[in-house]
Amino acid sequence: MSILKSKFIVLGFLLPLFVYLSLYTWNWRTGYLDRFAANTGLEIVGWILAPGKWLHAQAELSWKRYVALTGVREENEQLRRELERLKLRAMRLESRAEEAERLRRLLRFSPPPDWSCHGARIIGHKLGPNALLQTLLINKGKRNRISKHMPVLTSKGLVGRVLKVSPHFSSLLLLTDPNNHVPVLAQETRTKGILQGRGPGSSLAMKYVGQNAPLHTGETLVTSGMGNVFPKGLPVARITSIEHSSLYLFQKVTAEPLVDFNYLEEVLLLQRMEAPPADEATTAPEAQ
């Protein structure tokens, strides 16, 4: 009886636990299962959400059309038709103009030297029970040369970085997430620090700023280029308050992001341009 019981414990509990911990540790070292889940699960989610977003946009347009048309019912039939046509056209043009304006603002952004830009649309945000971090889903993936840790921004400022990539979709880690640390420096006083998110709707915290470091409210924080993830000089946030306390070694600095994350529709992704291989660069002039 006791042998049966111990067999049951081994097979029913210890063996699955051992298998699970082995898988977890192996994945922690290799990241293989994470990549597999991104290539399958994230792809499925992306393909399910992308058509829905399109349908949503179409439904919104139809609703706007309907609302706009209710006001001209009493008009003459011919004039009404004409008005409908013109209104629909105006609405389409207005929508396109708004989109064009947004895209123009994005295009006006000139990437830093040695970096190139990719545009992407946002198709979803954090979803599922494992979505612990503040993330967004975009419609670009490995096939579009998107890779992990690529900086993400709009014409207003930094949004975050790429967290996970599948063939056609990627998820972004937002600046507001507490796990996102961005090395920054103040644009005027050149004081350095690390900017950390404090969750959605909360301000950002600039850490490790010494008590005597010069800094003032309203100053813009830009990326410092340290850490080799973000290029130097991208606007990130604006300082909202500075507190000095004799109890702490550092100043307590809070800042607000320059980007409003609630109204994001399109983003830009920065890709580091690959430098030509060293031997190619050196042998080319010789060959000439």
Binding site: L23, N27, D34, A37, G41, V45, K126, G128, N130
Partner: peptide
């Protein structure tokens, strides 16, 4: 696979 792929924790949760 769906929850792990769309989530932000390492595989296993």
């Amino acid at each position: 696979l769906i929850q792990e792929g769309s989530g932000s924790l390492a595989f296993g949760a």
